[in-house]
């Protein structure tokens, strides 16, 4: 899908946001809407399975582990400032992202490094508000469309666009999904994504020791909050003054302007702080040696 404007044009003809996405997907790829829905239904099952897998067998990475459980304990014992839904979504996002680091089965949504945000939000929403399967499926279709627009106008690769293109895009996708689940208008859904994206412009990809752990896992946990607020801001009627397609274009040009050191090379940002560098040295000393 090349633009939000093309999707909204269909909505002005009377389609809902998910219907417009399915119609465009059918036109552009020749895949009947029923088939796309069936494929997305399987993806929804896989997203939920990625949560259940780590719930049944908690995971640890080489640098991370235990953060999700800590957040869950905090949620159970008190009343989190972000509210029970957001805090639960954050804990689930942390879990799935930790599972990714531990070589568990996940759904790249849109990437492996950002794989916690969408299942975190959708599963927490299901558990808190009990929507129907159809409503969740519609939300997932719209999340996919947001990712598709970012992929076609900008990029979804941290190596090309930094973390704004991975966790940032995932949060935008989740925000649109939430706006749809809350019954928002098509404009609400699209602007929820745009409001998130304009808040992550410039976010760098700086993995410590090259691992998909620090800061990736905690960014999954914290950007869930931005997704929730992006949806609420849009549902209140607030609009991005910059049209959503132009926000995505800006994300693409900011990504291209980022120096290579801040695009997944581990040569900048948190990766080269004294502690980041020390962690990288420690892990390098633990790694098996390859014959030269």
């Amino acid at each position: 899908m090349r633009s939000f404007e093309a999707i909204l044009a269909r909505c002005r003809e009377g389609l809902s946001l998910p219907e417009a996405v399915l119609a465009l997907e059918e036109e552009e790829r020749g895949i009947p809407a029923a088939e796309v829905r069936e494929r997305m239904r399987r993806r929804l099952e896989d997203l939920e399975a990625s949560v259940r897998g780590v719930e049944e067998h908690p995971a640890r990475g080489r640098l991370v582990g235990g953060e999700a459980e800590r957040m869950e304990a905090y949620l159970r014992e008190g009343s989190p400032l972000s509210g029970p839904f957001t805090a639960q979504a954050s804990a689930l996002a942390l879990k799935v992202a930790t599972g990714n680091a531990a070589m568990r089965r996940i759904v790249a949504a849109p990437t492996a490094g950002s794989c916690g945000i969408l299942p975190g939000v959708l599963v927490a929403y299901r558990r808190t508000f009990a929507p129907s399967e159809e409503e969740l499926l519609a939300a997932l279709v719209v999340a996919g469309a947001v990712g598709s627009v970012v992929a076609e106008r900008a990029t979804l690769a941290g190596a090309e666009g930094g973390c704004q293109a991975e966790c940032g895009a995932a949060a935008a996708m989740a925000a649109s999904a939430l706006a749809v689940l809350r019954g928002g208008s098509p404009e609400d859904g699209v602007h929820a994504a745009a409001l998130v994206l304009q808040s992550v412009l410039g976010l760098v990809c700086d993995p410590v020791a090259g691992l998909v752990e620090v800061p990736c896992v905690l960014r999954n946990g914290s950007l869930v909050g931005l997704a929730v607020l992006g949806a609420d801001l849009a549902l209140s009627g607030i609009r991005s003054l910059i049209p959503p397609d132009e926000v995505v274009d800006a994300l693409g040009s900011v990504g291209r302007a980022l120096p290579a050191s801040l695009r997944e090379t581990s040569r900048g940002g948190l990766a080269v702080t004294p502690t980041g560098a020390a962690l990288a040295r420690r892990l390098a000393s633990e790694a098996p040696r390859l014959e030269g």
Binding site: A102, A109, T111, L118, G147
Partner: peptide, 11 residues
């Protein structure tokens, strides 16, 4: 976009 389903951590 919502996929692939894979074992982590890196596509």
């Amino acid at each position: 976009i919502i996929g692939p389903v894979m074992v982590g951590p890196s596509s």
